[in-house]
């Protein structure tokens, strides 16, 4: 078991002929992901790494039965790509693109409410279930199959922590990068819920950062709804107010959005909160009784 993507995933790559799309399609294929189609408007009928390319998502779905998509489309066109995917009945959509306007994302988020679909991202590294499926730009070499679920707003911080887990011999069920933008398709709570239901996941690592209050909402959820132990880490204690720290969503703007407030909420909910990435792996080992 894993969450969101597994061996039944039939993946479509939107923007497959672009630089990033092409590069990561190759890597996903190497990981054994079942990539069934690509879409680049105007390049329908071509072949990319043996994958058929279509002009439209609807055309690709009709021919190949794709049920998940990953988006590498530039920011001005990315929201449209998500709409297109949603309208073609995709179940899981990972939007890797960074820099989509917030207003575009509010409209996308609104529309998702009318569909049975899960959007991961944007501005995220995607989803990887080690040994099962890779719908991501994550470096798969650092992963190893196991029982720890990882959910994070940051890419490299996820890699850092996954690497420390792997080095300690602790494997991962699925790693989900939910994205660093202010408006994202799926927040901590929905992913935590999926991990809670996943029989294979025995512990969850949640990696948050400054900006918004998603960590506080997650803390309440963990306290009230979860039996699976959760280890958390928050980045950005030294971030000054009003400055965007790399991710569009990582900005301190009021009391709730600080790292202190988030850590306090997590500890208040009885969640193990680490003070640095290495400590995360220690706390996970402790939670798993190793």
């Amino acid at each position: 078991m894993a969450i969101l993507v597994d061996s039944g995933t039939r993946l479509l790559v939107q923007g497959i002929t672009g630089r990033e799309g092409a590069f990561h399609t190759g890597r996903m294929l190497e990981s054994g992901t079942n990539v069934v189609a690509g879409v680049t408007p105007g390049k329908g009928g071509q072949n990319h790494d043996g994958i058929p390319v279509f002009d439209t998502v609807a055309g690709a779905v009709a021919e190949t039965g794709a049920n998940a998509s990953v988006i590498f489309v530039p920011p001005p066109f990315a929201a449209d790509a998500v709409f297109e995917s949603l309208d073609s009945g995709m179940g899981t959509i990972c939007c890797i693109t960074e820099g989509i306007p917030v207003h575009d994302m509010m409209r996308v988020a609104d529309f998702i409410g009318t569909k049975e679909a899960t959007l991961i991202g944007p501005n995220c590294p995607g989803v990887l279930s080690p040994g099962k499926s890779n719908v991501s730009i994550m470096p798969r070499d650092i992963f190893t199959p196991g029982n720890v679920g990882v959910v994070s707003r940051s890419g490299t911080l996820t890699y850092q922590i996954v690497n420390e887990l792997t080095q300690r011999g602790i494997g991962q069920s699925t790693a989900v990068g939910i994205g660093g933008d202010p408006i994202i398709g799926t927040n901590f709570i929905e992913i935590l819920g999926k991990f809670e239901e996943d029989p294979e996941t025995e512990c969850v690592v949640m990696i948050g950062e400054i900006g918004g209050n998603a960590e506080q909402l997650a803390a309440a959820y963990v306290q009230n709804e979860m039996k699976t132990p959760v280890v958390a880490y928050i980045a950005g204690f030294t971030a000054p107010e009003g400055k965007t720290m790399g991710h569009a969503g990582a900005i301190v703007s009021g009391g709730e959005s600080t790292a202190e407030a988030k850590s306090e909420a997590l500890r208040g909910a009885g969640i193990r909160a680490a003070t640095n990435p290495s400590e995360v792996a220690e706390l996970v080992a402790e939670a798993l009784g190793r």
Partner: peptide, 13 residues
Amino acid sequence: GAGLVMSTLDVVA
């Protein structure tokens, strides 16, 4: 990576 750099700042502090 934004998250890793933020975390680095924290660890230095």
